[in-house]
Write a protein that binds this DNA or RNA. Sequence first.
RNA 1: GCGGGUGUAGCUCAGUUGGUUAGAGCAUCUGGUUGUGGUCCAGAGGGUCGCGGGUUCGAGUCCCGUCACUCGCCCCA
Length: 414
Amino acid sequence: MTNLQPVRGTHDLLFDDLRRHRLIEATAFDLAARYGFVEIATPIFEFTDVFARTLGDTSDIVTKEMYTFETKGGESITLRPEGTAGVARAFISGGLAQMTPLKLFYRGPMFRHERPQKGRQRQFQQIGVELLGVASPQGDVEVIALAEHILKDLRLTGVTTLEINSLGDTESRAAYRDALVQFLGARKTALSEESRERLARNPLRILDSKDPGDQAAVKDAPAFTDFLNMASQDFFKTVQDGLAALGIGFKVNPALVRGLDYYCHTAFEFTTEALGAQGTVLAGGRYDGLIQQMGGPPTPGVGWAAGVERLAMLLPELTPAHRPIAVIPISDDEVTAAQSLTHTLRRAGLAADLGYGGNMGKRMKRADKINAIVAVILGADEVREHAVTVRNLDTGDQVKVPEADLVRHLAAYR
RNA sequence: GCGGGUGUAGCUCAGUUGGUUAGAGCAUCUGGUUGUGGUCCAGAGGGUCGCGGGUUCGAGUCCCGUCACUCGCCCCA
């Protein structure tokens, strides 16, 4: 081992950072269950093709951000850069088409080899849902409603905004793409170098470029909404009406384009101003062609994923952790009795802490440091009387309690 | 992958035009206090000054390289 630094873009989680993660995951899991979603855990690696084929050959994720390696058997394996492709693969290989509509929730680490910065790491946690086998816009509304519900319970609706757009069906999308390429092709000189590249590869992305020149050029470009065919327009309108009916606020953003190839119809993002360049906190959309494209039965799908680290950075102050009871033997003579007492309290469902050494003063200090709510003190007198001294560490009030009454007495401190 | 900024104690940071034993606050530990914590007082431990090379009588300080972090671009959760 030549150095002890963590691998670039990876982080250890503990204490409040990890509590934030767990709170987010638990909130999302519980609410997803309320909406009828069950958890799926897919492997964190797949054959490289699973991602290469589904995400699109032009996406940056595939072209430069995948952690890919070869096994001893010569197979190409990739650490999952996102969740949907793996779930889609599981849907197909597990024969889950029998069970549609299928509502799946997942959580776990994702891996992308890109330059780390605020809100962006090489290993990061995502939570997400996929609703498979539902073609109706009712599905889009449901998954967005779940997303909003999670953010609301996490008290994040104040710092996030929901933006939605429609990418239309395949036909609408192709027509728009042609029109956009034609329009921007004629103004090539006004575009940034990167956008000139994108014109051939991924022209829709020019719409949300941050380059001022690009933004000016795009200003008078044809609007996506004008190219939506009737079916796509109806679909989009139904989604908007559905959200409005649930009282979910949103903003239509015609420039909203998702990066991955498999999206169609609804695209949405919850964004924030609070995270610098990484404004997207939860994003998703509809992917009706994906499963079939991967070789499965034609199956519509809609879902989203959220970055747990980004949500964690937005989270308000955590409520203090549960306060334990400190058991304090006055001398070494009472340590065994104290350990037994601690065990009894724990068996009774109370969080009890027994330090590992030191005189009474030190043990009291430790009790204070771990934010104990009460100290249960055990000395020679107490042992003789089959009692303990209970000290309220906030008020300093102290009372002697018979051992038999202790658990009942401590219930007041829970 | 590209551009900017920053690296000094566990944390937050001082450190003068290059000058001899590198400091502070917080945190930790010990003692004041062997039946009572927080507050207070006294003391202690803790540093390859990110790493490597160079300039110099002398480098935390200047130069080059490198690594890491960070902000932005690209892209994305």
